[in-house]
Amino acid sequence: MKLTVASSPHIRGNFRTNRIMLDVVIALLPALAVGVWRLGIRALGVTLVSIVTAVVAEGIYSEVVRRKKIARGESHVAKNTIADGSALVTGLLLAMTLPATVPYWLVVVGAVFAIIMVKALCGGLGQNIFNPALAGRALMLLIWPVGVVNYHAAGVDGATGATPLHQMVMHALPEESLLDMFLGNCPGSIGEACSLALILGGAYLVWRKVISARIPVAYLGTVAVMSLFFAKAGTPVEWMLYSLFSGGVMLGAIFMATDYATSPATAKGQIVYGIGCGVLTVFFRNFGLYPEGVTYAILLMNAFVWIIDRYTAPRRFGVVKGGAAR
């Protein structure tokens, strides 16, 4: 009998990377289902193109790296990284931010950019500075803006016309009722319209301990409080609720800002980061060129994650300001 001599601990928990990724997919399913139901089968087409492109890009990149390592004679060459499920999640998240009318070629460009340039070339899973899905969307917005913000295509009943956020830019409350907004009965991207579905997904992730509620609560709380002061129509509370239920802020706060690799690891840091995302979102919405600011708010905050972690380190055990804790 050959006994293994290895470092403690000799037992480990059942938390695994691919299980976390599966949980994120499960959490996104309600929002995706609403998107497909509202916007038609093309929403599903966009989602599949995005996912397949992301997974294939990851698979090819990983295989090329593996072949090189094997050719160099490295003894320990890991399996292809598509097995960790993160490319699938990136593809799915990217699709959630897009309208159902987006040209397929543009989706392919965005997904390849997200996986190869933003993630893999930064060192892969956990190493990237910027959120791959949002960076992919930002590139798409840059090279073909019409394709990404065209919500005017015919879907099923009523999912046409200007988005609520476009109407709010014009200093008016949207035509849709608050309830319609909450349920996703309004034009918008595939995964962002239905706040109820997104909140359910977020609650599932918190319950499964995949994410903590700190970032979403700090983010949405900040947007809520600040939009009270930026109200341009209706009562401040109405304006606040419309602000929370419109655009990508719900999707962004729950699924994008909580991305492990691109958000802080300390509890205090997560709150600081959530507040930062919220402040920037409200500023971009009110003073920016585009009606929505979530993508750029989160991408900008991504750049500050390491510095936030550094200055929000937990207090050292046994030390308080001015000496030993007693």
Binding site: R12, N14, I20, A78, A261, A265
Partner: peptide, 23 residues
Amino acid sequence: NGAAENPVCLRCGKCVGVCPMRL
């Protein structure tokens, strides 16, 4: 649940939450 073939840090931060020495 033992060691992975290719250990990768996701930066999930769970280690920070469970560390009794607040590291």
